[in-house]
Amino acid sequence: MRYSASFGGPAPASVPVRQGIRPALFYGMFAALLCANALTATAFLFSNDIAKLWNRQNDQVVAAYEDRIAQLRVEVDRLHSRSYAQAGDINLQLQELSQQQEVLIEQHQLVKVLVDKAGQLGIDSAALPSASGAPAIAPLAMSSGNAEIDATASAITQMMGETQFAMTSIAETATERTRNIVTELSGLGIRVTLPEDDLDGVGGPLLAAVDGAEASPMIDDANAVMAALVRYKAARDSIDTAPIHMPISGNFRQSSGFGNRTDPFTGRRAFHSGMDFAATTGTSVLSAGAGVVSFVGVKSGYGNVVEVTHANGLISRYGHLSGFLSEVGQRVNTGTPIARVGSTGRSTGPHLHFEVRKDDVAINPKNFLEAGKRLTGLLG
C-alpha cells in the first residue's frame, strides 16, 4: 500500500520528478543576450557606418575615416606648434627674468655698500629691501601659466625701483648737506675745498666700439652716489677743522659779548675782542675745532693763553686760564681739553675769554658758534 507524502508515506507512482536548468545552457543564453545587447548598442552608435558597410560602401567609409584622421593630425600638429611657441616665449621670459634678478642682486650689493658708507657719515637712507626677497626664478621654469611670471617680473621691477630710490635718497641727502655746509662756512669766510676735479679723471687706450658692451647705467649711478658721499665727507671734515664749536661745557653763562662795551676797570667805552663765558675755576676749556696748538704761555692783558691754529688761516685764542692741558705742536680735535678756566691777566673773576682771529684781526666768535649750532642740528 502506498501512502500520501503529506502523511510521510511513499509518493504516488503517477507524480513525475522535476529536473533543474542545466548550467551550460544558462550561461550560453546569458552570453547570447549580452552579445545581442552589445551589437544593438554598436549598431545604434554606428548605424550610418554599418549601413554603408552593408551597402557595399566600405571604400568610401574607410576614406572618410582616413580624412578625419588626417584632419585630427593637422589639428594636433597645430596645437603642438602653438605649445612650442608658447614654451619658447616662456623660456625667453624666464631667461630675461633671470638676467633681471642678477642685475637686482648686483644692484643690491652696490646699494648696501653705499648705505654702509652713508651710515658712517650719519646719513640714514631709505629702507633697503633684501635681495633674498626676490622670487626664485628656477621654480617658475616648471610653471605653465604666465601669471606667475608677470608677478615675478613686477616684484623684481619694484625691488629695483626701491634700490634705485635708496641710491637717489642717499645722493640727494649728501648733496643737500654739502650745500648747507658750504653755505654756512662760506658766510664765515671759510673756503671749503671739495674733491670735484679728482673724480673726473678718466682714460684708457682708444679701442673700437663693441656691440652690447655698453657700461651699466647702474654702475654710473652708484659712482655718482659715491661721488656725492665723498664730497659730503670733505665738507663734513671742514666743519671739524673750523673753530665753530662751543669751547666750554658744563655750568657757565655768557658774561660779555664781542664789540664795544663799558670797560669793567675804567668805566669807559672800549672794544672787547671776544666772548666771555663765566664759569668756576678749573672748568675744562675745549678746543673749538681741530688744529694744532701753536701757542701756550702768557700774553699781556690775557694772562695765561692757549692758541690753536686751524685751516683757512684761522686761530682760536683762549685767555685768563688757570692751567694748561696742552703743549705747542700738539694736534687736537674738536672738543679736546686744552686748558682750565681761571682769572689770570686783566680779569674781574674766573671766566674764559674766547677769540677767533684771522690775519691777526679779531672776528666776532658769535657768528662761528651760531653756525656751529646750526650745522650740528643739521647733522643730528
Rank of each mutant, 00 (worst) to 15 (best):
S4V: 13
S6Q: 11
F30C: 13
T40I: 13
L45H: 11
A51K: 10
Q57F: 00
V62A: 12
E66M: 12
D67L: 07
Q71D: 08
L79N: 13
S81R: 07
S81E: 13
A85K: 10
D89V: 10
Q93L: 07
Q99W: 03
V103E: 15
I105Y: 11
E106I: 06
L121R: 04
A126I: 05
M159Q: 15
A166S: 04
A171F: 05
N180H: 12
I190L: 10
V202S: 06
V210D: 05
M218S: 15
I219E: 14
D220L: 05
A235M: 09
G250I: 06
F258T: 11
N260S: 14
T266N: 13
S273C: 10
M275P: 05
A279L: 04
S294Y: 10
G297S: 02
Y302K: 01
G303P: 03
N304L: 08
V305M: 00
V305E: 11
E307A: 14
T309P: 13
A311P: 00
E327T: 13
V328W: 07
Q330H: 08
Q330T: 04
V332C: 09
G342N: 06
T348M: 02
P350K: 10
E355R: 02
A362T: 14
N367H: 08
E370K: 15
R374E: 02
